[in-house]
């Protein structure tokens, strides 16, 4: 099962306006591991995640997913392996109904007919959103939208699940539901968040980012008990 590892070597990324978003990122994630990418707003979490399925491609450094380097030529294979749930749910739910949103991915992978229907229904059942099947995404709550987004990615059966701020705009009950959904997924999970309680409920390992650099990589327990580190990373709840 170790074939779907994620290996990031010396990754550096600078936006066109000169802002250095990531600097010398090195990370190795084994198959089945759950890793939280922690950091305050603007720390580089989303930028890092967008590199994992080739949404952003960097000139410096390299990313390797299960032996396949993330390059323009390998994007198709990479995107089949790495499923990403973006931060903004509205931009991800672009089809007219919930069913069609979830069916979009499997359809692109060649699934059709009864098999497609059962995959969609299973993904919606797993995320507790089967009752929303024919609803328009516009009419869903924040938590429901997030769950449908997760269902739409799970339906593609990716080997690696990447989540960008999955708890944004979700109430505590919704967050609890998302934790339960994620616990059911046994493949690799990479989650960017600044919600420490959520991160420790889902992940054992945490990587702390600050100004695009890794300042800590270790157990979630060690991160939560290290007040100095949390203060430095600006993710300490001390208001």
């Amino acid at each position: 099962m170790s074939h779907h590892y994620v290996n990031i070597k010396d990754l550096t990324f600078t936006y066109s306006d000169g802002n250095i978003a990531l600097e010398n990122i090195n990370m190795y994630i084994t198959h089945g591991e759950s890793v939280a990418i922690l950091g305050s707003n603007g720390a580089g979490k989303s930028t890092l995640l967008k590199h994992l399925n080739g949404t952003l491609l960097s000139d410096k450094g390299e990313i390797n997913i299960g032996g396949i380097p993330v390059t323009k030529k390998t994007l198709k294979k990479i995107r089949e392996t790495v499923g990403i749930v973006f931060q903004n749910t509205d931009n991800q739910l672009f089809m007219p109904t919930v069913y069609e949103n979830v069916a979009f991915g499997p359809k692109n992978l060649g699934v059709d007919g009864e098999q497609l229907k059962s995959i969609v229904e299973l993904a919606l059942k797993d995320t507790g959103t089967i009752h929303l099947l024919q609803k328009h995404p516009f009419r869903l709550s924040g938590g429901e939208k997030r769950k449908v987004c997760i269902a739409s990615v799970i339906a593609c059966s990716p080997e690696i699940l990447v989540f960008d701020e999955p708890t944004a705009e979700v109430d505590p009950k919704g967050i609890k539901d998302i934790v339960n959904i994620l616990k059911k997924f046994h493949h690799t999970k990479i989650i960017s968040t600044h919600n420490l309680k959520f991160a420790s409920a889902v992940c054992k390992r945490g990587v702390v980012l600050k100004h695009g650099k890794i300042i800590f990589d270790g157990q979630m327990e060690d991160i939560i008990n290290n007040t100095e580190l949390l203060r430095e990373a600006e993710i300490l709840d001390d208001y």
């Binding site: 198709k76 995107r79 973006f86 979009f104 991915g105 990615v153």
Partner: peptide, 11 residues
């Protein structure tokens, strides 16, 4: 963003 989202689901 919509295009990236479509691509990430194998479009």
């Amino acid at each position: 963003d919509v295009y990236y989202s479509m691509l990430s689901r194998g479009f």
